[in-house]
């Protein structure tokens, strides 16, 4: 699924005035690409994802998916891993994940698929637990599994691994990449972790804030599977850090 963001602008009314959260955002994500977005807190990353997924409308500009302009009501087959877990407190881990299934499946097929994804995110044994009985990171893994089980054509991940320890994080990054290799899902990953952005992305977009604009696009032309400690990796990392330090100095 290809996604094109043309000149998107977003203004929120706050009390009697307005704040401009996104200004002239232009991005092209081709089918099967992984785009990483990094940027300071509050620069409009979540807002951008909401607009792409159709949960919110742009004040100006347009989003074009597979060559067609989208409006709020059209069906899009885009998945979202929300920044917060957003689980149903009354449903077990199993039921929460099952909620993500939209394909018509038999009971057995559903059960099997749920089992597969519970295992994938390392929550075997917690099938019957309720969200309030899980740690924050475990809740986030349920959130991720619920979106992965949906198998959408494009998946928007909003700081998906932020709450996880380094091992679980690397593990899940690899799982997502594995799914991407199999299904060629278009991925947009918002993250605060620059290494993660480089490790995952075909391109890294740096956004700056107030108003949020695309400051720089940095291609990551490294072969998979990438070596986080390599010199090429370090070179790209330095390039991205430079963008941030410039910004704070201004």
């Amino acid at each position: 699924m290809s996604i094109e963001i043309r000149n998107v602008k977003k203004v929120f009314p706050i009390k009697n005035s307005t704040i401009e959260v996104l200004k002239n955002v232009d991005l092209k994500i081709s089918d099967g690409e992984i785009l990483s977005i990094v940027g300071g807190s509050g620069c409009g990353k979540s807002t951008l994802l909401r607009i792409i997924s159709g949960l919110d409308n742009a004040t100006d500009g347009e989003v074009i998916i597979d060559g067609k302009k989208v409006d709020g009501s059209s069906k899009k087959d885009i998945g979202v891993v929300f920044q917060e877990p957003r689980l149903f407190p009354w449903s077990t881990v199993e039921k929460n994940i099952e909620f993500g299934i939209t394909d018509k499946l038999t009971k057995e097929e559903k059960k099997e698929r749920v089992k597969y994804y519970i295992d994938l995110v390392g929550l075997t044994g917690f099938e019957k637990a309720l969200p309030h009985q899980l740690s924050g990171g475990m809740q986030q893994r349920v959130n991720i599994a619920r979106s992965l089980i949906n198998e959408p054509k494009a998946l928007l991940l909003d700081e998906p691994f932020g709450a996880l320890d380094a091992f679980t994080k690397i593990n899940l990054q690899n799982e997502v990449l594995k799914i991407w290799e199999q299904k060629k899902t278009t991925l947009i990953i918002v993250t605060h972790d620059i290494d993660e952005a480089i490790y995952m992305g075909n391109r890294v977009v740096v956004m700056s804030s107030k108003p949020g604009v695309v400051k720089k696009e940095i291609p990551v032309e490294l072969p998979r599977k990438r070596n986080r400690t390599g010199t090429d990796f370090a070179y790209i990392r330095r390039k991205i850090y430079k963008e941030f330090f410039e910004e704070t100095e201004v």
């Binding site: 997924s53 949960l55 957003r86 149903f88 909620f99 993500g100 939209t102 619920r146 949906n150």
Partner: peptide, 12 residues
């Protein structure tokens, strides 16, 4: 509304 959006995203 955050939970309602989950319903929207999964096309319920």
């Amino acid at each position: 509304s955050k939970l309602l959006e989950v319903g929207t995203i999964f096309d319920k």
